[in-house]
Simulated assay, not measured.
Amino acid sequence: MSVYTELNSSDFTAILADYNLGQLHDFQGIAAGIENSNYFIITDSGRYVLTIFERMQAEELPYFMRLMKHLATNGLSCPDVMARHDGSLLFETNGKQGCIVSCLSGKTLDALNMAQLRSSGESLARLHLAGADFDEHRSNPTGPEWLAGKIAEVVEKTASIYGRDAAELLTDELTSQRALDWSSLPRGVIHGDLFVDNILFDGDQASGIIDFYYAHDAAFAMDIAITLNAQAVLLGDHDQQRMDAFLSGYEKLRPLQQQEREALPLLLRLGALRFWVSRLYDAIYPRGGAMTQTKDPEEYRRKLMFHRRKA
């Protein structure tokens, strides 16, 4: 992710002193994403990712650590959290908490083909099944109250920067979504942020899912909608076929219920609205950082319009 907290070799050496990972050989900041500070580190025992948490509350972090261990134990290819000498899973540096996790095989891709979309669908279904008996819970950090609050904060500046039509679209879609209730849909642990930079591939086969720091309890169909928007919808001529490919892979392991199928078109709109609002907020109220990346809000406005036109 983007690097907001800069570490030097002495910082890494001090952190590694509490692990059984050997001496530091090299490190490199990872300039992608917008939430945490991530580094690749290489030690005597291998290659790892070191993450420093920039925004999350300290009391939330043990949930993510234990979730990743649970998912890995139950058949999902995802990072394993390294334990310190005392068995703890988190370290502290510069007044912030962090963790070290294993590196997975494969690489991220800029865009997925049909075979890769099918494999990604299988991976998401495997995640939902692997988390079925995870007994910890986390509420949705970008739920209805968050959404309404963020729209209130950005709507006027959206009108002045992006135009009155964009501001009206925000409030109109929020009104439509407020009338809906998804509480009866099948639910459990979801990833919540499965963009192409959070899934690894060896060829056409998905080899691992990373970055679980948006994970929470929600409808599985919401996770599907978020992932379809992120991976399958390119605003081109073949988007429906791309979505169908992803869903065919997902349903190999977990067939959708009829109510999930019926909800999906509106959840695609909700997912597009959430990420549009998040990107608008980051563009209007940018944070400083040594290696930061602000993503284009316009992409998700266009995706929301795409789904509204299909309604």
Rank of each mutant, 00 (worst) to 15 (best):
S2D: 04
T13P: 04
A14T: 11
A14E: 13
L16I: 02
A17F: 12
D18Y: 10
L21T: 08
L24Y: 07
D26G: 15
G29F: 02
A32T: 07
N38A: 05
F40K: 15
F40P: 14
I42R: 03
T43D: 12
T43N: 11
D44F: 08
Y48K: 09
Y48E: 09
V49L: 07
R55L: 12
M56G: 06
L61M: 15
L61Q: 13
L61G: 02
M65K: 11
K69Y: 06
A72P: 04
N74T: 00
D80S: 09
V81D: 04
V81M: 06
A83Y: 06
A83W: 02
H85I: 12
H85F: 06
E92D: 14
Q97R: 15
G98R: 01
L104G: 01
S105P: 02
G106W: 05
A115I: 07
A115M: 10
Q116S: 07
S120R: 06
E122V: 07
L124D: 03
L127Y: 05
H128T: 01
A132E: 15
D135W: 01
E136T: 01
P141F: 00
G143F: 07
L147Q: 10
A148G: 09
G149F: 12
K150Q: 08
A152H: 06
V154A: 03
K157T: 14
A159H: 10
S160R: 15
R164A: 14
R164N: 12
A166F: 14
A166E: 08
A167D: 04
T171Y: 06
D172I: 10
D172P: 10
L174G: 02
S176Q: 15
S183R: 13
S184D: 12
R187H: 15
R187I: 04
V189Q: 00
I190P: 01
H191W: 00
L200D: 05
D204M: 07
Y213D: 01
D217Q: 13
D217K: 09
F220D: 04
A221L: 07
A221C: 14
D223C: 04
I224H: 03
A225E: 01
A225I: 06
L228T: 02
V233M: 12
V233W: 10
D237C: 05
H238Y: 14
Q240A: 12
D244G: 05
K252H: 14
R254W: 12
E260M: 03
E260S: 10
P265V: 13
L267P: 02
R269I: 08
L270I: 00
A272C: 05
W276V: 09
R279F: 01
D282G: 03
R287T: 02
G288E: 10
G289F: 03
Q293C: 11
Q293Y: 13
D296W: 14
R302M: 08
L304D: 04
M305K: 08
H307W: 15
R308T: 05
R309V: 10
A311V: 08
